[in-house]
Design a protein around this nucleic acid. Structure first.
Lengths: 204, 204
DNA sequence: TGACTTAGGGAACAATCTTTCCCTAAATGG
DNA sequence: CCATTTAGGGAAAGATTGTTCCCTAAGTCA
């Protein structure tokens, strides 16, 4: 027999006093800046405002905190990119907007703060299967998004039909990820629209 | 009084039994694969074939081993790139060759092994001033090399004179560094020459 | 040959880090 | 209102790490 559709009342014991997502946002900040290995539980307790015991109540271990933070980081970032793409009208403009968003993300303090996808790819993709799977998924998702925009542009004639959407998208992904690398070193392009103009030549 | 130009006989005590550069090559391998923080002294003793005491005789501490390995990595890599560039005749061909070299470096096991410059930029550029200085120098050196090749191409008319060499080189550096990121995740472009063809459009 | 200097190796040390444990607090259910 | 469940917090434990120390070995210098 299936259980009756129980009203989702409060769960059993003492209720959690903090918001999980807010705590994860603070963890994201630390992981972005320091990476996984350089971040201690002490760093997390300080940033999240929780005692170590409480962190281990909410998460199995440090790695699980990281994976949850990574998932949330990718979720928020995908929403941002989707919003940026939605704001523009033509496919070509959407591509411009997305590329511009990546360049802006690589500049200044935001750029120095780093990207959790790039950081995880470099630091953990070799050592941690689950992280690797998430990175692969994120990269192929973003690549598919760009390829799709390219195809839309080819459909509305704003992008030449002769270029290969998949190959071009793959090269563009390299560009976006590389932006985060140079941004981490404080060497992102100073002039966003000039950089985007150059990057858009890949669509010629 | 200045010392007389002493013949450089053997140094004082017991001579070192291993070759410093060979040991550093083995350290490079480990640092490339695991990064700085995830590499323990135990990992280094195993890889370098030296006891911990011997490592600390040759280097002040783990960080100093890493800096020496990083310097050697950049030295070797610069030599390779220079050789690749020298092998081609025209400026445009040299650019093609250099870009192709980067794509090849990002593929397969070599790509998975990772780039020490990218790894250091991501993991340490924020936390370690000296590492940051080396990364900045490496990026600007490579950027200057590309910009120089572009200018040569403009001089011999194989590259349009209207493009900005510095801005274009900066975007190209993003591409090369991004290749190492996706290469680390095993997602480098499969077809090197196709990818280079697309990247060369930045010079249009 | 004997004093001196530097290298090799590994045990010992000191610090740090992750995780567990335990006690108290706050909620629900019968 | 007492039993039960889960959260919060911090001390303690257990594991790992980076570094030092010390003894032996292999050279040079006088």
């Amino acid at each position: 027999m299936a259980k009756l559709p129980q009203e989702v009342g409060r769960p059993r014991g003492r209720p959690r006093e903090f918001d999980l997502d807010e705590a994860l946002d603070k963890a994201i900040r630390v992981f972005r800046e320091q990476g996984y290995n350089a971040t201690s539980i002490g760093d997390l307790t300080e940033a999240m405002g929780l005692a170590s015991g409480s962190i281990y109540k909410a998460f199995k271990d440090k790695r699980t905190v990281f994976l949850a933070a990574l998932d949330r980081y990718m979720l928020l970032r995908n929403e941002q990119i989707a919003a940026v793409a939605r704001a523009a009208r033509t496919a070509r403009e959407r591509l411009r907007a997305v590329l511009g968003f990546y360049v802006e993300s690589a500049k200044g303090v935001e750029g120095r703060r780093g990207c959790m996808v790039v950081g995880s790819a470099i630091e953990l993709a070799i050592a941690d299967r689950e992280v690797a799977a998430r990175i692969t998924a994120a990269l192929s998702r973003n690549e598919a998004l760009l390829a799709d925009l390219i195809r839309q542009g080819q459909a509305d004639r704003s992008i030449p039909g002769k270029i290969d959407p998949d190959e071009t998208a793959r090269v563009m992904i390299c560009l976006t990820q590389g932006l985060r690398v140079v941004g981490r070193a404080g060497r992102a392009p100073a002039d966003t629209s000039a950089a985007v103009d150059i990057a858009m030549k890949l669509l010629a």
